[in-house]
Amino acid sequence: MQVKKLAREEYEAALTALGVNAPVEQLPVWQEFESTIPGRSPWGFVSFEDQGALVAAASFVQYETHGYRYLRAHHAPVWGHEPSAAEEHAAMEALASFVRAEDKRQVFARLAVKHELPVTRPCLSTLPYDMTVVIDLTGGDDEILARMKPRGRRDVRKALRECQVSFADETELATSSFDEYYEVMIETAARDGFTPAPCEEYRNMLRILGPEHCRLFAGRLDGQVITWTLATISGERATRYYGASRSGSARALATDRLIYFECCELSRMGCTEYDQMGIGSDFQPATKSLNTFKTKFAKDGERCIAPDRDVPFKRGFYSALHKVKDVRGALRAMKNKED
């Protein structure tokens, strides 16, 4: 296996030659978006070749944090076929040799590797997942509803009957000003216990990806935004990337109806699949709480995917980072116990 650096035009040609629908994060425009986020910058595009034949490609962004640098390729490499463990191992070894020769500053790469390999390590940070839910958008509104689990159909029908919220594609409005939507995200973050990205990051995502690759769907009650979703699009595949909703008794109904609205709208735009962006499993039990809600919208929608894993280039440095993380985790555990 051999890794080669590509110009943008060569990379786009490689994706076409592979004949697969690349994830939105692997489109060159995603590098333009990530370059607006502090600490991130485009690193480049590469191909993976086996005996001279193209088998995969990847787009890498450089991340700088805590005084070191690493490479990130979301949902990549993009393979033209389902790779075996041996093929993935050869690709990761080739990538490590290439990066060590090309850029000695990089400590590791984080990318999607289906098989657990001797050259990979569990992610130093983030919560990777190996299962997701994909909603089939073919056949129109009635077929989308019919393919849900009984609980999903019941909840959506109840929302259609009782929810007084009005729904629309508000991509253009959100691109011009994201402030109203960000208020809802702040409320969601406070309720669910996470830190939202800065407001400008969401607006840049809409602005740079453009309506071809990014849409915002929202629900309003008495003119006020109470729920919204930011969905990405690449070819025929859409992904439910971000979502937020105000607290209140009507929240569940509004969210159920919004998701169904998104499915129907994306189907009319030509999308055939809608990825719900990860559920829990034995690989990642921390997110199993998401399963009941996400799986109800697709009776046969669960899919196994390649999870993120780290490939160290500077093994000693990388091991030291893991040790620091373990110490910090132990100190936090002690503090929580004392509290």
Rank of each mutant, 00 (worst) to 15 (best):
A252S: 12
A252Y: 10
A254G: 04
A254T: 03
A254P: 04
A254I: 09
T255G: 08
D256Y: 04
R257C: 10
L258P: 08
Y260T: 07
E262D: 04
E262F: 03
C263S: 12
C263M: 12
C264I: 10
C264R: 09
E265N: 05
L266Y: 01
L266K: 01
R268N: 07
M269L: 15
M269Q: 08
G270Y: 06
C271Y: 02
C271K: 03
T272D: 00
T272Q: 05
T272V: 14
T272F: 01
E273H: 13
E273F: 11
D275P: 05
D275Y: 03
Q276T: 09
Q276L: 14
M277W: 12
G278A: 03
I279W: 00
G280R: 03
S281F: 12
S281M: 11
D282Y: 11
D282P: 05
Q284V: 14
A286F: 10
A286I: 04
T287S: 08
K288V: 07
K288H: 14
K288C: 12
L290F: 03
L290Y: 05
L290S: 10
L290P: 10
K294Q: 01
K294A: 02
T295G: 10
K296P: 10
K296V: 00
K296F: 07
F297H: 02
A298W: 11
A298F: 06
K299M: 13
D300I: 00
D300M: 01
D300N: 04
G301D: 04
G301C: 09
G301T: 00
E302G: 03
E302A: 00
R303A: 14
R303Q: 10
C304R: 14
I305Q: 11
I305K: 13
I305H: 04
I305D: 13
A306Y: 00
P307S: 05
V311Y: 02
V311R: 05
V311G: 09
P312I: 01
F313I: 00
F313R: 03
R315D: 15
R315P: 03
Y318W: 05
Y318K: 04
S319D: 01
S319N: 13
A320G: 11
H322R: 15
K323C: 14
V324I: 11
V324E: 08
K325M: 12
D326H: 14
D326E: 15
V327M: 02
R328T: 08
A330E: 11
A330P: 08
A330F: 11
R332H: 08
R332D: 08
A333L: 07
